[in-house]
Simulated scan of single mutants.
Amino acid sequence: MSESTPRSLRAAGTAGAEITGTGAAGTLQVRDVRLRFGGVVALDGVSFDVAAGTVCGLIGPNGAGKTALFNCVSGLYRPNSGTVLLDGVDLLGLRADQIAGVGIARTFQNLGLFATQSVLENVMGGAYHRTKAGFLAGGLGLPLTWREERREREHARAILDSLGLAHLERHPAAGLPLGTLKRIELARALMLRPRLLMLDEPANGLILEEVHELASVVRGLRDEHGFSVLLIEHHMGMVMSICDHLVVLNLGQKIADGLPDEVRNAPAVVEAYLGGPGGAA
Rank of each mutant, 00 (worst) to 15 (best):
residue 224 E to G: 08
residue 173 A to L: 00
residue 237 G to W: 11
residue 237 G to I: 07
residue 233 E to T: 02
residue 257 D to Y: 04
residue 165 L to K: 08
residue 195 R to K: 14
residue 231 L to W: 00
residue 183 R to W: 12
residue 238 M to P: 05
residue 180 T to E: 13
residue 256 A to Q: 07
residue 246 L to K: 08
residue 243 C to G: 14
residue 163 L to H: 05
residue 185 E to T: 12
residue 243 C to N: 09
residue 245 H to P: 02
residue 172 P to Q: 11
residue 186 L to Y: 05
residue 234 H to K: 03
residue 217 V to M: 02
residue 233 E to M: 00
residue 247 V to W: 07
residue 207 I to Q: 13
residue 210 E to P: 01
residue 245 H to Y: 10
residue 231 L to K: 06
residue 247 V to F: 01
residue 203 A to Y: 05
residue 158 A to M: 03
residue 201 E to A: 08
residue 208 L to K: 15
residue 181 L to C: 12
residue 262 E to S: 01
residue 226 G to L: 04
residue 217 V to K: 00
residue 166 A to M: 11
residue 222 R to A: 09
residue 175 G to I: 14
residue 230 L to I: 13
residue 240 M to N: 13
residue 167 H to P: 10
residue 204 N to M: 15
residue 261 D to E: 15
residue 263 V to I: 08
residue 158 A to Y: 00
residue 244 D to H: 15
residue 233 E to R: 01
residue 262 E to G: 02
residue 246 L to A: 09
residue 255 I to Y: 01
residue 169 E to I: 02
residue 244 D to N: 14
residue 194 P to Y: 10
residue 232 I to S: 03
residue 199 L to R: 02
residue 220 G to E: 11
residue 212 H to V: 10
residue 262 E to K: 03
residue 234 H to E: 04
residue 170 R to C: 09
residue 264 R to C: 11
residue 162 S to W: 01
residue 219 R to F: 02
residue 232 I to L: 12
residue 218 V to S: 07
residue 190 L to S: 04
residue 174 A to S: 15
residue 180 T to M: 10
residue 248 V to R: 00
residue 201 E to P: 04
residue 248 V to P: 03
residue 240 M to G: 13
residue 165 L to N: 03
residue 254 K to F: 01
residue 216 S to V: 14
residue 181 L to S: 09
residue 168 L to V: 13
residue 245 H to M: 09
residue 220 G to Y: 00
residue 188 R to G: 06
residue 207 I to W: 11
residue 202 P to R: 02
residue 216 S to L: 15
residue 238 M to R: 08
residue 183 R to N: 14
residue 220 G to D: 09
residue 194 P to F: 00
residue 202 P to N: 05
residue 215 A to G: 12
residue 265 N to L: 12
residue 185 E to F: 11
residue 211 V to W: 07
residue 265 N to F: 14
residue 239 V to R: 03
residue 180 T to S: 13
residue 226 G to K: 09
residue 194 P to A: 08
residue 200 D to T: 08
residue 174 A to E: 14
residue 264 R to M: 12
residue 266 A to V: 04
residue 222 R to L: 04
residue 259 L to S: 06
